[in-house]
Design a protein around this nucleic acid. Sequence first.
RNA 1: UGGGUUAUGGUGUAACGGUAGCACUACAGAUUUUGGUUCUGUCUGUCUAGGUUCGAAUCCUAGUAACCCAACCA
Length: 553
Amino acid sequence: MSEEKSLNFLEEIIEADLASGKYKQIITRFPPEPNGYLHMGHATSICLNFGLTKKYGGYTNLRFDDTNPITEDTEYVESIKADIRWLGFEWKHELYASDYFETLYGFAVQLIQKGLAYVDDSTSEQIAAQKGTPTQPGINSPYRNRSVEENLQLFEAMRNGKYQDGEKVLRAKIDMAHPNMLMRDPLMYRIKHAHHHRTGDKWCIYPMYDFAHGQSDSIENITHSICTLEFVPHRELYDWFIAQLGIYPSHQYEFARRNLSYTVMSKRKLLQLVNEKLVAGWDDPRMPTISAMRRRGYLPESIRDFCDGIGVAKRENLVDIGLLEFYVRERLNKVALRRMVVFDPLKITITNFADETEWVETENNPEDPNAGLRTMPFSRELYIEREDFMEQPPKKYFRLAPGQMVRLKSAYIIQCNEVIKDAAGNVTELKCTYLPESKSGNDTSGIHVKGTLHWVSVAHAVPIEVRLYDRLFTVENVDAAEGNFKDYFNPKSLEVMHTVFAEPALQNANIAERYQFMRKGYFCLDKDSYPQKLIFNRTVGLKDTWAKEMKKA
RNA sequence: UGGGUUAUGGUGUAACGGUAGCACUACAGAUUUUGGUUCUGUCUGUCUAGGUUCGAAUCCUAGUAACCCAACCA
């Protein structure tokens, strides 16, 4: 019974740093760019960064990496904050890279003074051409040897708006033949006469990621700056700037971002789905965004469980979305209120039942005795699920069939006596009889049936709408599939059933509650609901071993 | 053809020179008034080839494969 959970590589680093006394507390940061909604990939980063400081003591800052005014907006700032809080985390300081623009400018001036940065008049194309390729060294810019004084003067003029966008840039002077492309005189500042969501029109030059991120980490005394693997080559530059500036040495550590099967995670692709109306918006429940998962009914605990469960490492991966669904079910099973809803109704008449309503008691959640009981109206005319009847049942079919008996959950055992069909031969109704002595909780019939069905009383049924969701794409590894990713969009990812029949208790459904429509899946009320029509999202289906069995046959 | 990162069952992740473990999935069974839940059991793995060692997933050598880097994006 060893409770020792093995550590991931970041925990090992942190424990070593703490043990050696390198740090007394650790400080991390979550650094989103406010140019889109957060998705499952961000959730893993959030759980990691906040989880680490929660575990080891210290804190996590929320820092918006807002160095590109063209793409950023406060709308995103608000949604990002809401998503982090919903996931259950709270940041120490809410910060913005733009808060540091003046400091960053000063850092740039220092580098110019040390002869480590210069203003370049080359065009974007010329710079690209000078850069070389991964296998060929680059060549120096003709502007590389300007004097410190001239660079200082030009950089100030850049700041003062003397130049148009793209006319000049500030570059670090490192080594145009460096094997790491990022060290070949990387850009530090570019000119953008654009309105910034926080600094307004104060600036017309903006720092690049590489000249903002590490310095921001340093300013905040971030001890462990955790990012994804594609930034590994940036680390050399990250360290270089910090070393040349002689500022607090934050360190960058990289992990492999998590990929999920049957979906896409890049902001660019998600934005395309939204813009091209393949989905209804960022929070369309099919999306892998946090806002979509919330709307769909996922519990934040499930997402945290998932992030813990998949761990963190440095190898490429494609996590089965079924694993996420497992954690979603696991949590929901414990809290969801059970309700009965018939999707595809088949009317049955209990011929020996009086023309009256009997209210039967049933539990709200067998997993939670505290959830209590409710009553359901049982009457002569009921709906059952059409798929719960077969005229010619296969072996081991425990549901209703001519002459066969089943229990109606929390009510009585019934037997099917007669099948009524229309002219086309479709089954339209069943005539059944019930066993009065078989009432749930009071069964003296001595009869044991294998099947138990959900049902609703025809006269009391509440029509509701349900929205059923399936995987967003038809292939497991969307990013690796040939051609355009949209070719693999799953046209059946949304199925709307406009009218299904719910037991009356669902009339009082509220958006905070989670429900299990018995034998159907987990559902939650959608915000699109209006007084005349309740709309439910299927969060995730139940495991269905019978369906699997039938598929095999 | 340069630099960097990574290789453990179907998937994800442990094992830090000493019995390849855990979770999901799959399969078989028990329980069940949800064909749900719960419980039990089973199958499947160390990229390849050499070497060091009493002993290698782990150390060494040589390969192989995948991913990242040539945005005035982050």
